[in-house]
């Protein structure tokens, strides 16, 4: 049996983990994702999205499901691994004080699990304050030191000073992690579930931070489109080869003018498009680019020109 890909979502209480989880569960990504959460309490799912609900599991009409940990984390994992069919991806929302380094060990040890990445959510408004909490500061440092991707939430309502100082903190504590601004949790799920650089070999995050006063990480912005409009294949090819400032990655699945379906993918200078079988849902495209260079609005305009509105 192939191993189930696993992504951890970590971050302190109130950072916005649940918003990210809600987004993953309701996003039209076409994957059967299982999200394991501490409790359903804060998960706000549209009633019309819910297929059925039994004690510890909510099944959604898009094929996703949400399970609660209940009394024991390990029994919950075992229950998910025994599901048939097995979910295509497991997302574990850890508690606000969990050490993702420790939680991640389960997915490294269990051969039926394949750890793809650790995402740590921080919010631009409250993080600095949380870091000064004597009971929590070290926990938050440890979480960041494990991150492959740091998601920054609430940047839209944070003061410029707070945002700037958060960037410095993240760059110091997680110098090699990617960063992405994700106000309201809106990041294309594909980007969250993609393999991330794994940082689960932590020896001493404090010593590591001292050695690195420079920032290896980069900050990204995301873009996503979902719809049923058809694309003009020639225009799509032009877009795949076009000069788009700061674009890191663009991929998607769309119906073209002749009614066939095409998957496309662009990473750096490499781009490809090929015919595929029709998917279950709608067309979808996602992109990610370097913050400060990549402009999602500009890509949206370019994409509108690719779509065949005739």
């Amino acid at each position: 049996m192939t191993a189930i890909p696993v992504t951890l979502i970590s971050g302190y209480l109130g950072a916005g983990k649940t918003t990210v989880v809600n987004h993953i569960l309701s996003d039209q990504h076409g994957r059967r994702i299982c999200v394991l959460v501490n409790d359903f309490g804060e998960i706000a799912l549209d009633a019309d999205l819910i297929d059925n609900r039994t004690g510890d599991t909510v099944a959604l009409s898009n094929g996703c499901m949400c399970c609660t940990i209940g009394n024991d984390f390990y029994s919950a994992i075992d229950r998910i691994l025994r599901m048939s069919p097995r979910p295509e991806h497991l997302v574990i929302e850890t508690s606000g004080v969990a050490d993702p380094f420790k939680v991640g060990q389960i997915a490294l040890a269990e051969p039926e699990m394949d750890l793809r990445g650790v995402i740590v959510v921080v919010d631009a408004v409250n993080f600095a304050n949380a870091m000064t909490d004597p009971f929590l500061g070290d926990t938050l440092r440890n979480q960041l030191a494990t991150a492959g991707l740091v998601l920054i939430t609430k940047s839209d309502i944070a003061s410029p000073g707070a945002l700037k100082s958060l960037r410095v903190t993240v760059a110091t504590l997680a110098p090699e992690a990617l960063r992405m601004v994700a106000d309201h949790g809106r990041v294309p799920s594909e980007l969250l579930l993609d393999p991330l650089p794994l940082r689960l070999k932590r020896s001493d995050p404090h010593a590591h931070a001292q050695d690195h006063d420079h920032d290896h990480g980069a900050e990204y912005r995301g873009w996503v489109w979902t719809g049923s409009a058809r694309a003009d294949s020639a225009a799509l090819d032009r877009l795949l080869g076009a000069d788009i400032a700061g674009l890191y990655r663009l991929k998607g699945l769309v119906q073209t003018e002749d009614g066939g379906w095409n998957a496309f993918h662009r990473a750096g200078l490499h781009a490809e498009r090929r015919a595929v079988d029709p998917p279950h849902g709608q067309g979808r495209a996602v992109a990610v680019g370097l913050a400060g260079h990549f402009d999602p609005a500009e890509l949206q305009s370019a994409w509108d020109r690719v779509l065949d509105h005739g």
């Binding site: 606000g96 004080v97 050490d99 009971f135 070290d138 440890n142 001493d204």
Partner: peptide
Amino acid sequence: PNGIWNLEPA
């Protein structure tokens, strides 16, 4: 490093 909380202090 210091140990772990079972639940958020709050």
